[in-house]
Each structure stands twice: as structure tokens, then as C-alpha cells.
């Protein structure tokens, strides 16, 4: 119940701060671009757009959200409130995931792409969004300004995004799937191009485990380095 209230409060906050409006505008922009692409290019561009923007939006916004709440003293209140740290973090992850999912579904739906596995797209977006938001919470530790946060995300983004080129295919490139972003992109591509049941199950279990580990790490980092600032 606490978690549900926290999620609803975060959604209200995001609505007030224009997250939904800005993603509506961005969705329209992507749809204009995608409408001019030939189908063979669209089949590559669409999953890449969904993966690189809506799914990763948590990483972009979470830094500012936590810095602002820190500045407003919200985190100090959190310490004495019944809301657990894990619930606070989950609330942020879930609320940002809702924006991701809505944007991803809208971009895909209005692109009129013929073969989409909607359930798989939903799962892939949720798991990818979770990874990047939780990563953002950990990167945020020790940051005092948004500029510091944005700069700190660059190496992580390179570390997570560059290996995705492995999906183009080269010798031993299949080993790169151990990197969560590559696994997430593989699942995302599977939602559009098809993927075997075994591979889907393996990727979903793996990404779920990564989300769980990152959540544990994020809770520890958040308590130690953001709330109490050891």
C-alpha cells in the first residue's frame, strides 16, 4: 500500500513536471521520422529508437529527481518515515517505467510495424528501463549538480551502449550478451523480429536477475552515499 501511494505520488510529480507532455512531443517527432523510412530500414530503426530513448529515459531523469529531492530535504524525511528505502527506489523505478512503456508502445503502435510481439515488447521495455534507472541511482551517489551527474553518465553509457554493436555479428560476438544492455537489446529486437522461446526465457530470467542485483546495490548505495553521505 505504501509503495502504491509512493508510485502515485511520483506519477503526479512527473505529470506536474511535464514528463508525459515532453514524451508525447518526442513520440510525435519519432513518428514523423519513422514514417519516412522504408520498411527494411524501419525494422532496424524502430527497435533501436525504442531501446535508446524511451527505455533509457530513467537514466536521464533520475539524477535530477534525486538531486532535487535531496535539496528539498525529502531524503531526510524519508529516514524518519515508514517508507522503506527499497520502496522509495522501487517507486521511482516503477513510475519512470510507466512513462517508458507508454512511449515505447505508442511509438511502436503508430509506426504500424506489422509483426510485433506486444507482450515481449512490454517485458523488454520494463526490464531495460529498470536497469538504466537503477544504474542512474548509483551514478548519482556523490553528485552535487546535474552537470556532474550528466558527465558521470557518459562512461557508463559508453560501457553499456558500445557493446551493443556486437549484435551486428562478428567472431565471438555472442559472448557480449552477458552485458545487460546487449541482452536487453537482443530481447527488444526479438519483440520485433521474432526470437525462440528458449532464448526469450533465458534473457528474461537473466535481465530479471540483473534488475534484482542492481536494486540491492542501489538500495545500499542510496542509503550509504546519498542519504547518510558516508
Amino acid at each position: 500500500m505504501r509503495l502504491l501511494h509512493a508510485v502515485l505520488a511520483d506519477i503526479r510529480f512527473q505529470l506536474k513536471h511535464g514528463f508525459y507532455l515532453v514524451y508525447a512531443i518526442i513520440t510525435v517527432m519519432y513518428l514523423i521520422i519513422l514514417s519516412f523510412l522504408a520498411e527494411n530500414i524501419l525494422s532496424v530503426a524502430l527497435p533501436l529508437i525504442v531501446f535508446s530513448d524511451p527505455s533509457v529515459l530513467g537514466l536521464f531523469f533520475i539524477g535530477g529527481i534525486i538531486l532535487m529531492e535531496k535539496g528539498q530535504g525529502v531524503l531526510m524525511v524519508l529516514v524518519v518515515s515508514p517508507l522503506r528505502t527499497s520502496e522509495y527506489i522501487l517507486s521511482k523505478v516503477l513510475s519512470l517505467t510507466i512513462v517508458s512503456v507508454l512511449a515505447a508502445l505508442a511509438i511502436t503502435w503508430f509506426s504500424n510495424y506489422p509483426t510485433v510481439n506486444w507482450w515481449l515488447l512490454l517485458v523488454a521495455t520494463i526490464l531495460t528501463s529498470g536497469i538504466f534507472t537503477l544504474l542512474g541511482i548509483m551514478i548519482n551517489a556523490g553528485c552535487n549538480t546535474v552537470n556532474q551527474y550528466m558527465l558521470r553518465t557518459i562512461p557508463y553509457m559508453l560501457l553499456f551502449i558500445l557493446p551493443c554493436f556486437a549484435l551486428l555479428g562478428f567472431p565471438y560476438s555472442e559472448f557480449f550478451v552477458i552485458i545487460p544492455s546487449v541482452a536487453a537489446l537482443k530481447l527488444m529486437l526479438g519483440a520485433y523480429h521474432g526470437i525462440s522461446g528458449f532464448e526469450t526465457a533465458a534473457l528474461v530470467i537473466y535481465l530479471f536477475a540483473i534488475n534484482y542485483i542492481l536494486l540491492k546495490l542501489a538500495v545500499t548505495t542510496f542509503e550509504k552515499r546519498i542519504v547518510y553521505q558516508d
Binding site: 517527432m29 531523469f61 532535487m68
Partner: peptide, 26 residues
């Protein structure tokens, strides 16, 4: 505030699209 700043930054990135509008012929 910072969060609205981030929302603005995200939205302002879309302005770049206007550099390419000739390509869309709309």
C-alpha cells in the same frame, strides 16, 4: 527546478528536427 530543467533539455533536443524538415517535404 532541476527536474523541470531536465524535461526542458529533453524537449529542446527535439528542436534539432527542424534542421531536417526539408527532407520530409511536409
Amino acid at each position: 527546478d532541476k527536474v523541470k530543467g531536465l524535461t526542458f533539455a529533453k524537449g529542446l533536443n527535439t528542436l534539432v528536427l527542424f534542421a531536417f524538415t526539408d527532407l520530409f517535404a511536409l
